[in-house]
Design a protein around this nucleic acid. Structure first.
Lengths: 231, 231
DNA sequence: TCACGAGTTGGTATCCAGTACCGTATCGCG
DNA sequence: CGCGATACGGTACTGGATACCAACTCGTGA
């Protein structure tokens, strides 16, 4: 199957590839008549192609809204894969892969905003979006688990990374932040702090919890004993 | 609209309410011919009812798999709502609401296991499940944000709670844990530890970090000083 | 210049989920 | 015995998605 994204045909009917024309026609119609109020036939008709061509360019009607999801997910996976399995390198890979996603949507600009409004309105598109989110989360977990011994902790970290990213992204899509990258860095630092404490992989961390009424001297001594016992 | 779950009709055609019969017929057919290979007509026919009745009992074909999602979500919401907006009470409410969900699935027993295998196999059902998860996560966030000042932190906590719960639940569904509640309590404690450090609202917790080469005696003394300084 | 084959497109038929509408049967009640 | 309410079944329709087939385009080579 050839790549539908490369326009080999010389200006078939109008400007842009068939895929692009379909995408534009779809988004315009969604704005005019709403997502559910628009049929695939109407999209194809406005783009000047047949109904069959639509389903050849996009797997489904929903796919018009998320055209680059698969390749973006693949980019994230490959970025994560090309990273030695150490905690330090792993964290760098995770944050870089996350920023890869943010960069993509920021570059999309207006298109990403239109998609955001659609996903907030149409339930089926919202479900589709969170399903995509889940795939990112799974990809992150699949990487983190290679260097984080505790499996649950790895899952929690993956959940936090995707949640933090999504929070920042949505803030930017709503126009609430001028510089998304500053917000992004702060959010990622917050996630990092959350997990930095208990890394536990190297055994260099100790956590102490006490009830409100514990004697400081006793707690201090207990910590000292615990450290000696582990050394 | 009357409640379809209460069988007022006296043994209409076979044993059990229409809803129950449809559910049983559906799950049996899914085992025999697969989810996508089963049509709603076949489900209705095996249950001895008309096609219309199916869509009256369940909003969609997928809803047969998640029959109690809405009420369970509502239970979680009400449990969270009936809780004063303090961090201590909030945490208790969150963990109780979470255990509410786990309890429901554990009580379902075999049915939950069959559903798990379906959701692992059929993509559309998997998407539907994560969409449901998202609703829980949103409900938790909606509660946590009332007593946690940092909005992102609230989102992260909600993500961790649902992730931890789901991890334990899936372990139990796969038969990997004998006592799900012990695992659940450990997982929830782990989430609590993750956020307890910086919460600082009650001031009852102290965390100590040290480099690998730190002297245990010094760390112990530092903890003691920190506790005294705070008291 | 023409024939050929690969790739692209369009149209038709079909399946199936989901909705709307209407006729009918059954039950409870006065 | 009527009468309203509720539940049920059937039919028809919409629209997404798939399968299949016919026609067209274009490059290549004889």
């Amino acid at each position: 199957m050839p790549d539908p994204r490369s326009s080999t045909s010389p200006a078939s009917r109008a400007a842009g590839s068939v895929r692009t024309r379909l995408q534009r026609a779809a988004l315009d119609l969604f704005d005019e008549k709403g997502y559910d109020g628009t049929t695939v036939d109407e999209i194809a008709e406005r783009a000047g192609v047949g109904r069959t061509t639509f389903f050849r360019a996009f797997r489904s009607k929903e796919d018009v809204i998320f055209p680059h999801h698969d390749e973006l997910l693949e980019q994230v996976r490959t970025r994560l894969a090309t990273s030695p399995a150490t905690e330090a390198n792993g964290l760098v890979a995770v944050f870089e892969a996350t920023s890869l996603v943010l960069r993509h949507y920021v570059d999309e600009g207006d298109l990403a905003v239109r998609r955001y409004h659609l996903t907030r309105t149409v339930p089926s598109l919202r479900d589709r979006e969170v399903a995509g989110l889940r795939q990112y989360q799974h990809a992150f977990w699949d990487h983190i688990r290679t260097w984080m011994p505790d499996d649950l902790q790895a899952k929690l970290m993956a959940a936090c990374v995707t949640t933090a990213h999504n929070t920042v992204l949505r803030q930017w899509l709503r126009g609430e932040v001028a510089d998304p990258w500053a917000t992004f860095n702060r959010a990622m630092a917050q996630v990092r702090e959350l997990f930095e404490v208990r890394g536990g992989a190297d055994g260099a961390t100790v956590v102490v919890l006490d009830g409100a009424g514990a004697d400081p001297a006793q707690v201090g001594a207990a910590v000292e004993r615990a450290l000696r016992a582990r050394a």
